[in-house]
Design a protein around this nucleic acid. Structure first.
Lengths: 248, 248
DNA sequence: CGCGAGCTTGATGCCGATCAATGCATGTGG
DNA sequence: CCACATGCATTGATCGGCATCAAGCTCGCG
């Protein structure tokens, strides 16, 4: 990667927010065309991140947010003693880097799980513009708030679900987000390893693997390495809700 | 609560942000006196919440944020099947209700663990004002971002620490926040039950209790019900870092 | 005083971690 | 094209930490 002889370094074609097919999922939600033009003006640059490379590291100075255009990212934190935790997986239209606002430094790593492209949004410019555009301000706040709510959901999962329930919740979340992006939702290719799933879910990779096998045996999934086909989404949902606990 | 015969319904004394001793911890951080006056204008009302009562519930319409003035709150989410998870404990100067921005409805419950008082901050007014006051906008964004970072820390804890490590991290976090508010930090009174601590940490109350006893036996703490005295903060910190894993 | 909520402590069992071996796909060099 | 290495996934066997079940205990309060 970082191949210095790669023929295309600069953006070969201009893709603005106003023409982006993600604008219904991303920062521009609810904005008028004039407002979109203003936003386009500050989302000037784009950045390509090769699979395995970091978009930013914990400790890096914070200056920009990043909207995923194509590809797939994981974010994660680690403590001094090497313990680390995947805190999220991020697909097209999602915003990365919000963690950096609080301290002017990023507090987590963001790593591309496949070759990816992000829109670079200068944070101070975004602040300035969102003081003028109410709709932008509102959408930005909504995105941050939803991130908090999402994290609470993960805390619930980590704090009170057992292994298979966690994996079921994870798969349903993934398929739902894929569906929002126009994919089938019953057919998916995991971009991450079993170990990364395990880290996100607070499990070991063997446990994740066993849960996949169990789901396959029970006819809920068809699992071929990272190719997953959901055969019985309702049963997965039933797992997430009270399957064993309260059959009442 | 809402006792109609209570003699004092309106605020008997006016306490504005500009005169609040929490202004270095709360929303006003970094604001000038003129800016503080503007903020005072929108933080009009205060609300008293009796111990055990809810400030808001999941599902309630969202209209305001709440800054804790005095007292102590827990927030928590619950899934349909009754599983529930304490997502945070909140003391003076901290902002509650950020979860509601994303969907215009609160997504968690906030319950007072002791008689408490909050400042009510109309969210739309705050949006309006933060479009005018850069410093307010910045501080508000910082607070949201830090909430995200805090949640990531909890995810790390829930995903990769064992019981005693979790409790140690929890206690250190509490003492640190108390110290920031001028308390000793070695002497504290827990406002929550073992069960609530357990829910927050993804443990059962018995496990929490055993960990407390273990810490007392080892001379790290003195535990008298909810009265805790920290005798060896360094040892607690060592637990949070790699105690058993990498002694290298 | 006696009740009840919350806390402590012990005994037992289970879920998931750990250790270990094998399988499978991709890629590389001879 | 095959032999081999490498990274990831699966599967089995065993172990350990925490949950669960079950008594008591403490303290505040009507």
């Amino acid at each position: 990667m970082q191949n210095p002889t790669h023929p295309i370094r600069l953006e070969p074609f201009k893709v603005a927010c106003s023409g982006c097919n993600l604008r219904e999922l991303c920062l521009p939600v609810g904005m008028s065309t004039e407002q979109l033009d203003r936003l386009d003006a500050i989302v000037a640059t784009r950045r390509t991140v090769a699979r395995g490379d970091a978009l930013f590291h914990a400790g890096d100075a914070f200056a920009s947010l990043y909207a995923v255009r194509t590809g797939f990212f994981k974010t994660g934190v680690s403590s001094e003693d090497g313990r680390d935790q995947v805190t999220g997986f991020h697909m097209a239209g999602e915003l990365l880097g919000l963690d950096g606002i609080g301290t002017d430094r990023h507090t987590c790593d963001a790593v591309a799980l496949e070759d990816s492209q992000v829109c670079v949004i200068g944070y101070h410019q975004l602040e300035d513009l969102s003081r003028e555009l109410t709709d932008l301000q509102r959408q930005f706040h909504r995105i941050m708030s939803r991130e908090i709510v999402r994290d609470h959901g993960v805390m619930l999962l980590l704090g009170s679900m057992r292994a298979e329930e966690r994996l079921a919740a994870f798969l349903l979340n993934l398929t739902q987000r894929l569906r929002a992006r126009g994919f089938s939702g019953s057919e998916l290719v995991l971009r991450m390893t079993r170990e990364e799933i395990g880290s996100y879910l607070g499990l070991k990779l063997e446990t994740v693997s066993r849960a996949f096998s169990k789901f396959q045996d029970d006819g809920l999934l068809e699992v071929k390495q990272r190719q997953i086909r959901v055969l019985n989404a309702d049963a997965l949902q039933a797992l997430v809700n009270g399957s064993a606990c309260g059959a009442a």
